Amino acid sequence: MSVTLRPYTPTHRRKRWQPVTILLGVVLSGLAACLPVEEPPVPTVAQIDTLPTALFLTQNAPPAGFGEVNFDPIDANLTDLEGWAYRITGSFSGTFVESGDPASGDFEIDVWSNELGEARRVTLQVRGAALSPDAAGRRLEGVRLSNDYYTVDTNGVCTAGGDSASIIADLSAGQIIGGVRGAVPNGFHHEIAGIESWNYTFAPEDARLPAVHQEEGSSVSMTPDLWIAPDYNAVMTYDLRLVVENVRILWAEKPVSGTLKMRYELDAGALQDLPNISIPNGC
């Protein structure tokens, strides 16, 4: 006959731990009831009046990296491209400050550049005493081929070298229409000459206007329109309407008051077909 031995547990020991176990469970339950319950974070309440604008800006945002941009000068980054061209135009209508006589003028500047060929060509035409010391107007051309400069004066005479040749050939939009800083998108975008572009806005004090020379008692108010093409990291168009008081414009000697309009426009075709630049006729 076999006998199985089992460990002996006194009955009084089992009964002694039962009350302790029950008491411990009651205490833990009480502590759990006293501890604060962590509520999930309350989401930020959207402002109903600004929600449509926020959604519009989000849905129509430009590519990453173009949330806030600086284009000063306005033709910044073009030298990173193989070739390009742009035109700057302007017109003024108003009066001469000193005499009160009517004042007017207009100008047109075309710039071509072939970065691969290290060539640049600029033509400048300005008319009217409101913009130029010569009311009859002037037309100049400058060409740079590598380190060689050429200029064609108002009479069509071509000259190689000289300071005037380099001044004209290196004339840029930044010297005329200036540039902007801290521009931000406003949600509007469309294609300009087949290139996707976004509209930007900026504070008036963040615009540089070298064409407008202010003196004591001068004032300038502006209405801008700026379109940028992220694919080329370049400004496509920049329009300015300026209401000016007692300022000199461009190369004029007399102060004027009135309305000045200026426009910068990048040539989309020149981004694909490199400009052909050669020595001017007569040189």
Rank of each mutant, 00 (worst) to 15 (best):
G142N: 02
E39N: 11
W227Q: 01
E196F: 05
N199M: 14
N281F: 10
D163G: 07
G128I: 02
T58K: 15
G194R: 10
R121N: 02
A32G: 15
N114K: 05
A193D: 14
E115A: 03
R144T: 01
V26Y: 09
A129M: 09
L240N: 06
V256Q: 03
A130I: 05
V97W: 03
A136P: 02
T11I: 15
P102K: 11
E108F: 07
D101Q: 12
V157C: 02
A136G: 15
D148R: 09
A193F: 00
T223L: 12
E191W: 04
A160M: 08
V26T: 13
L51W: 15
P230M: 07
R127F: 11
I249F: 06
I192R: 06
D239C: 10
T79H: 13
N186R: 04
P280W: 00
I109H: 01
V42T: 13
V69N: 00
D206K: 08
N186G: 10
P255D: 07
E215H: 10
G194Y: 08
D148Y: 02
G187P: 05
S219P: 08
R14Y: 10
I249P: 00
L240M: 13
P19N: 09
Y8V: 15
E82A: 14
A130N: 04
A54H: 08
G179R: 00
V180H: 02
Y149N: 01
L266P: 01
A64L: 12
A33N: 10
Q214L: 09
L260R: 01
D106Y: 12
I74E: 00
W227L: 04
P7W: 15
E216F: 14
E215P: 02
Q175N: 13
D267C: 02
A64P: 06
E68I: 14
L55Y: 10
G105E: 05
A103M: 12
R139A: 12
R144N: 00
G178C: 07
P210Q: 09
D101A: 12
V247G: 01
H190I: 10
Q214V: 09
L260W: 07
A234P: 05
S93L: 11
Y200I: 08
D267P: 03
V126R: 05
E191I: 06
